[in-house]
Amino acid sequence: MASFPWVLAAVLAAGPANADTNDWLTNWPTHETFGDGTDLGLVLRYQYDANEFSNGDGKFADAHTNRRKYLGFYVKKPGVYDATVYYDFQSKAWQDVFFRLQSAALLDQDFGALRFGQSKTPVSFEGVTTSTQTTFIELALPSQAIYENRRIGVDWAIQRTHWLASLGYYGENLAGKNPGHTLAARAAWVPLHQPGEVLHLGVAASQERPYGIVDALGVQQPATASFKTPPEAGLTTVALVSSGTFTGVDHINRLGLEEVWIEGPWSVQSEYLQAQTSFKNGRPDYDIDGFYAFGSWVLTGESRQYHDGNVSNVIPEHSWGALEFALRYSELDLNDGRVLGGREHDWTAGANWYVGTHLRLQANYIRAFSDRRGLVINPHVVELRAEIFI
């Protein structure tokens, strides 16, 4: 049964014997455009993963199952508005649920766009990249540990050919978790911006002020925070490094520095992330940081795509698809003062086969190295993914 999604993907890739394969794989009837330009479409993302572990000191169990099952819809009128709503039936959680209005539709001039609803907070370039568009199967160590994820709020964003900026204010998420508020901003300079040639240099920062919750007895509990991550594997909850849970948190400052360079089939992406947690009881701040850097090469000659201040998948120019190889190094340090959360660094080798514009097969090999309070665990992880996305 574990091989079923891979067989299915191969059958879909083959397509009808008498059809133009490239056209069949690319032009799916997933949306309808009306006479006034309004576009109504389907959002579908399905991912099936397999994780196999070795040398993990018995802490990990092999697994194969659904990773994501997104279903939703969007409606947009270019230059006027767009709205998106979709739900993950795997995690049983709402994902992006928002309405965005373009200022040019009201003011005859483009002063940016206002977005209302649940969306991703901006600190972590890799974190805000759509899961079906990331080069590797899972986010790098610092992205998983520091990224704040989705929140309900309002943000403003403006984009020009060679720069972009955004500012947002957020509260809790639609599940009613993570109560508090966050103020966040992002800016980037894009001196090179044309197909197959991009240089993006950006910075993002935020301050989160978490609220405590009221328990079942009506007692106010202090705000908490925790930083941890599995070894870049999505089908395990085992974290080799972890700060533990802090109480009495006042605020968390996050900072991200981001870089993307694309030159034809070659690309380099890197990011530095930092989080500083301050407390109400006079306890010393807890500072953590990490970074990742990776390079990729598209063997078949295509380029990674870049638009709207972020990256997206290779678009194949061959009927049988495009093939990409990538290598990533990531590092995370959760030790600070008396808090010995541990240090970890991972090497990840990846291969992606893009079959048309809606299908992708991925394979990753991760070599992780961790040390927490003298306990050294260095697992090997093999990950496979088959995905369909619209």
Rank of each mutant, 00 (worst) to 15 (best):
L25A: 01
L25V: 02
L25F: 09
T26W: 06
P29I: 00
T30F: 03
H31Q: 08
G35D: 14
G35R: 08
G35S: 13
D39C: 03
L40H: 03
L40G: 05
G41N: 01
G41R: 01
R45Y: 04
Y46D: 06
A50S: 13
A50P: 06
E52N: 14
S54T: 07
K59Q: 12
F60R: 09
A63H: 07
A63G: 06
H64Q: 13
N66S: 13
Y70N: 15
Y70A: 12
G72N: 11
G72D: 09
G72T: 10
F73M: 15
K76I: 07
K76T: 15
K76G: 14
K77H: 13
K77N: 14
P78A: 12
G79V: 05
G79K: 11
Y81F: 14
D82V: 09
T84W: 13
T84G: 11
T84Q: 15
V85R: 15
Y87A: 07
D88N: 10
F89Y: 12
F89V: 07
S91Q: 13
S91H: 11
W94N: 09
Q95P: 05
D96C: 05
V97I: 05
F98A: 10
F98S: 12
F99V: 10
R100K: 11
L101S: 12
L101K: 11
Q102I: 05
L107H: 08
L107T: 12
Q109D: 07
F111P: 07
G112F: 04
G112R: 05
G112E: 01
T121P: 02
S124L: 06
E126H: 05
G127P: 06
